[in-house]
């Protein structure tokens, strides 16, 4: 799947180079946002339909842990974004804006590309996609160290594309925390992007 995603964006770059010019960007933006809204609607249906899984984890101790994990992901991602600004030369605001995608490359890249700049949208796409791709390698390795640690690299993708791998590597119990982590982060990514883009 990852290869086909890279293939799609490479094909898009070629298509854009050969068939479009800069004046076509508004049409592309409209298409992007329409497709994104549809995907968000479908993601919402999946989230809403998983209430039984959420109910299983509702003991006080598990709830504290289930809430601590997304908080840790947010603080760690923002801190990582902040520190990376000293290496990449990007300003702190741009770095944190990209980091606030929390691994949700399709949403963050489209929103940042449409509402901020295409350059930063491209960085958001590649940066958050690198996060997901490397998670496919890191999850089995980190699960040997500590089962909860394997949830760390995935960010918002731990509720969908990475969830089967987490369950396979660390078991269903960890998988439930992975789902909650991804769910909370997926709900918060649009809020963070909205707040940061309007700041």
């Amino acid at each position: 799947m990852i290869y086909s995603l890279f293939g799609a964006i490479a094909g898009g770059i070629l298509l854009g180079y050969l068939c479009f010019d800069v004046s076509d960007k508004p049409v592309l933006d409209t298409t992007l946002m329409t497709a994104l809204n549809f995907m968000i609607l479908v993601a919402g249906i999946e989230i809403g339909g998983n209430r039984k899984l959420i109910a299983k984890i509702c003991t006080p101790k598990n709830m504290v842990l289930a809430l601590a994990l997304p908080v840790g992901t947010i603080i760690g991602s923002f801190a990582g974004g902040y520190l990376s600004s000293f290496i990449t030369g990007l300003n702190v605001y741009d770095s944190i804006l990209v980091a606030s995608g929390l691994g949700w490359y399709s949403l963050s890249s489209v929103v940042i590309s449409t509402m901020h700049s295409t350059e930063l949208g491209a960085i958001a796409f590649f940066g958050n996609m690198i996060r997901e791709v490397s998670s496919f390698v890191l999850i089995p390795l980190l699960a040997r160290w500590h089962k909860l640690m394997c949830i760390a690299p995935g960010g918002a993708a731990t509720m969908d594309s990475l969830l089967p791998l987490v369950i396979n590597s660390a078991g269903m119990h960890t998988g439930m925390f992975s789902f909650i982590n991804g769910l909370v982060l997926s709900l918060l990514v649009p809020v963070f992007l909205s707040v940061l883009l309007n700041a």
Binding site: V64, I75, S77, T88, R131, A152
Partner: peptide, 27 residues
């Protein structure tokens, strides 16, 4: 842009892993 994205993606993963290490030790 690719280099910047690679560094940024790597830093966010490392930052999150550090936070998870603390959470695991605490909870």
């Amino acid at each position: 842009l690719g280099k910047q994205a690679f560094i940024l993606g790597g830093c966010t993963i490392i930052g999150t892993m550090v936070m998870f290490y603390i959470i695991i030790k605490l909870f």
